[in-house]
Amino acid sequence: MTTNDERIAESVAVALREVLPDWEPTVSTMPMDDAWVSVPVDGLIPALEVLLGRFDIRHLSAITADEIDGVLVLLYHFWEGEGITLRVDLQEPERRIPTLVSFLPGADFYEREVFEMYGVTFDGHPDLRPLLLPDDWEGGPPMRRSAIEETGESGR
């Protein structure tokens, strides 16, 4: 376990300043050994290359989509002895982001789930179709706040 000063996130942020000179990454710690580093949409792939190439961090635990203060945020959770998350704020109304599948085939199902639940398009994904929802699903992405407010409790 590392202290706050030595978190991997800090080192990743330093490396990101080199590959993304126009971007100032924010680092924020989360309880229990995790920290997120902010990355722009077009900086996701360079950031991933930094994680894979320079730090040999290859384990992607999950991709979470969340609506924080009205902004649709994607969180890519990695783990190597401690947690390091890449946080990407998506642009509305496009909601597009490049896919990670060509680098990490393990991201496939996570991206498909975010696609169907939040309506995010992953550019370059080989097979972007719903994972869990039925084929005859009517109505929009069920996890979006707008969908929940429109359709009431659980949209039934």
Binding site: L132, L133, P134, E153, S154, G155, R156
Partner: peptide, 13 residues
């Protein structure tokens, strides 16, 4: 299976 149980109201249930 009697009533939907704890999942009653789920968007796919």
């Amino acid at each position: 299976s009697c009533s939907g149980g704890i999942f009653a109201g789920g968007h796919n249930v």
